[in-house]
Design a protein around this nucleic acid. Structure first.
Lengths: 128, 128
DNA sequence: CATAGGGGTTCCAGTCACGGGAAGGTCAAG
DNA sequence: CTTGACCTTCCCGTGACTGGAACCCCTATG
């Protein structure tokens, strides 16, 4: 399979696939003409990566998850730890964003938003 | 005021303040020795920027907000539009993260996380 | 007077995970 | 033979800084 086929099947852009090779996440073979030749195993790895990335795992986490996936004698506890850590980070981010949202909602609600210059949003930013 | 004083009073690191000068958000004066000399107005701008950034506004938004703040004949509607747009983006982000969180929670709950290799998390990533 | 320290300055490189675009090789169809 | 769709490598840009190197300035102390 050439990169275009893999891109279509995994949903990953060719650029991303090349990047993943660059940083050593996959190592496709090469045809005589220099084109990358992907085995099924390469494609499955890339699909795995795509789904892990879609869940927000960092590339470093993905590397670890991939290694655990390949390792038949892994401990599922290691996988869980990574996932739990990521989950914690996401929950923290949601909290931070929710606080911003609440503040912004209040400000937006307070501001009449017409042609006049008086603006509680700017007032708040000017001295909170 | 030197950069250190401003950093302390605004809570912004000196590096960040220099960066903000670099991209034209503030233009402090210079002393004879080459040190930046910040007026009170500079410090207020920086404090304003710090609070806007803390609410998650992009630098570009901050630039616009700062200009509106300085413009006595602004329309508060312009400010509100920026804030509303940012609020929408934040809400979208929270939604995306919440979806990830829900999926991850399920997976983490399903995984026993012991020394055995069986792992629903990896199973899910391997073919969802 | 020398020096030690705690300021400040500039500039360069790195972060994260790619994306855009240039310049050029390869291949199948018309 | 040419067209067009692929593929290749390489380099730069993203956002908003952060770290570090190399160097200057100012004050206080031995």
């Amino acid at each position: 399979m050439n990169i275009g086929d893999v891109a279509e099947r995994t949903g990953l852009p060719p650029k991303t696939i090349r990047y993943y090779e660059d940083i050593g996440l996959v190592t496709p073979l090469r045809s005589d003409n220099g084109y990358r030749r992907f085995r099924d195993s390469d494609m499955h790895k890339l699909a795995f990566l795509g789904r892990a990335r879609a869940l927000g795992f960092s590339i470093d986490d993905c590397r670890d998850l991939l290694a655990l996936w390949e390792d038949q004698s892994r401990a599922s506890g290691d996988v869980r730890r990574i996932a739990q850590g990521h989950l914690d980070a996401i929950e923290q981010k949601i909290e931070d964003l929710s606080a911003m949202r609440d503040t912004l909602r209040k400000l937006v609600t307070c501001c009449v938003g017409d042609d006049r210059p008086d603006c509680p949003i700017l007032d708040d930013l000017a001295r909170a």
